[in-house]
Computed example of a mutant assay.
Amino acid sequence: MHTPPEALEWTYRRDLIIEEVFRHFPAATPPDVVAMQEVDHYDELLEIMASRGYAGTFLKKPDSPCRRSLDPSLEDGCALFGRRAALTVEGVQQHQYVTGLQNGRVAIGGSNQVAILAALRRPGAAKPILVGVTHLSAEKSSEGERSRVAQVGELCAWLQAAAERWDAAATVALLDMNGAPRSTNCKYEPAAYPAAIGGRLRSAYQLVLGAEPAWTTWKRRGGEELKMTLDYVLVSPEVTCHRVLLPPDDADVDFERLPGWRYPSDHVMLAAELSVVDG
Rank of each mutant, 00 (worst) to 15 (best):
A251Q: 12
Y188F: 15
V233I: 13
A173K: 00
A180Y: 00
P123Q: 03
T99F: 12
V92S: 11
L258F: 09
A138C: 08
W10R: 05
D266H: 02
D278S: 14
W218E: 00
Q113P: 05
A28P: 11
W218P: 00
Y188A: 00
A169Y: 08
V131C: 06
D249P: 11
W218R: 11
A86Y: 09
P259T: 06
R165F: 13
A251S: 14
Q160M: 10
P190A: 06
S69R: 11
T11P: 09
V208S: 00
Y205M: 07
E9Q: 13
A27F: 05
A35L: 05
S236W: 00
P5K: 09
S64H: 00
L101A: 02
Q96C: 00
Y205G: 11
G153E: 10
P181C: 08
R200I: 06
V208C: 04
E38P: 01
L274D: 08
H95K: 14
L209P: 02
H95Q: 10
G223F: 14
V21R: 08
A126Q: 15
P181V: 08
A28K: 15
H242S: 13
T57K: 01
M1D: 04
R220A: 12
G279N: 14
A115G: 09
R52N: 12
D76H: 06
G260W: 09
E143R: 15
G77K: 09
L45W: 05
M269F: 13
L270W: 04
P30Q: 09
Q206Y: 11
A138K: 10
A28V: 09
S183M: 05
V98I: 12
G179K: 03
E256G: 05
P31E: 02
T3C: 11
A195P: 02
F22Q: 06
R23E: 08
L159V: 14
A125D: 10
A162R: 11
E75N: 13
W158N: 09
R84E: 15
C241N: 08
D43E: 15
T217P: 07
G210L: 01
E256L: 01
V89T: 12
G110P: 07
I197V: 14
E19N: 05
L175H: 07
P26L: 00
D231S: 06
M177P: 01
Q102S: 15
H267K: 10
Y54K: 06
L234H: 02
C78S: 10
L226A: 07
A191Q: 13
A170P: 01
R182N: 15
D32Q: 10
Q113V: 04
V244Y: 12
A191R: 14
E145P: 10
A50H: 06
T134L: 11
I17F: 12
G77Q: 07
R68L: 11
E225K: 15
V133M: 05
Q113F: 10
A169I: 05
T171N: 04
S236I: 01
E164D: 13
V233D: 01
G56H: 04
V244G: 07
Q93V: 14
L234D: 02
L270N: 03
I48F: 03
E47P: 03
S111G: 01
H242R: 15
A118Y: 07
I129L: 12
A107I: 07
P30H: 03
E44Q: 10
V114F: 08
G222A: 04
L245A: 12
L175S: 02
P128A: 01
Q113H: 13
E139S: 03
M1Y: 04
S141T: 15
D252A: 12
A180N: 07
L230K: 01
L74V: 05
P26C: 02
